[in-house]
Amino acid sequence: MKRLVLPLCVAFSLPACGDNHPPAVSPVAPNAAGLAAFETVREVFQHPRCQNCHPAGDAPLQGDDSHVHAQNVLRGKDGHGNIGAECTTCHGPANPPSAFGAHVPPGNVKGWHMPTEDLKLVFVGLTPRALCEQIKDPARNGGKDMPALRTHLDDPLVVWGWAPGFGRAPVSVPRDRFLAAWETWAGAGAPCPGDATASR
């Protein structure tokens, strides 16, 4: 009997078919679905694990409250810090062992750094629309088109946001949900929100 009911659920999108069945086809227009997906993307980009290295100024941020990095750490021209105080002076090639305790600098195999002075790629404080437009703009995102941006999501420093090491909250949106939202947004033509409401 169940074998008969299941196709009916899909075919007619019957809401009464129960939770075990595939969801009904969304009546939402592609653009609206894309905009909804972008909100998930935005939440990730403006999570402290991501935005702390994409500040409006030249000092990186740290912590779940995104406070200014201690020790007068600055991005430097190439985004790798200042001579004598490069990011990798303290941030090693991997997260330290948990046994080292909290508040020990995390690390990454790619080498810790932030955007360059000339191409800051600010995430902090931008409206959803401004963030959206910037992400898509090759003149401001390092020359990346949408496929290149998708590839960048697999960059070790990006992936680190979901495995930030002992004592740090990972990005609040699960990575698989983020990637699905990205695909939905990109598939809908990467629409940007039309309003200018502040995001945080």
């Binding site: 002076t89 303290c90 090693g92």
Partner: peptide, 26 residues
Amino acid sequence: GMAQCGACTVHLDGQPVRSCVLPVSA
């Protein structure tokens, strides 16, 4: 012991690093 004071700084191939938070295997 947490890379916040710099007293433990040494060089790795000439680059300064905080030796108190770097596992020797790295």
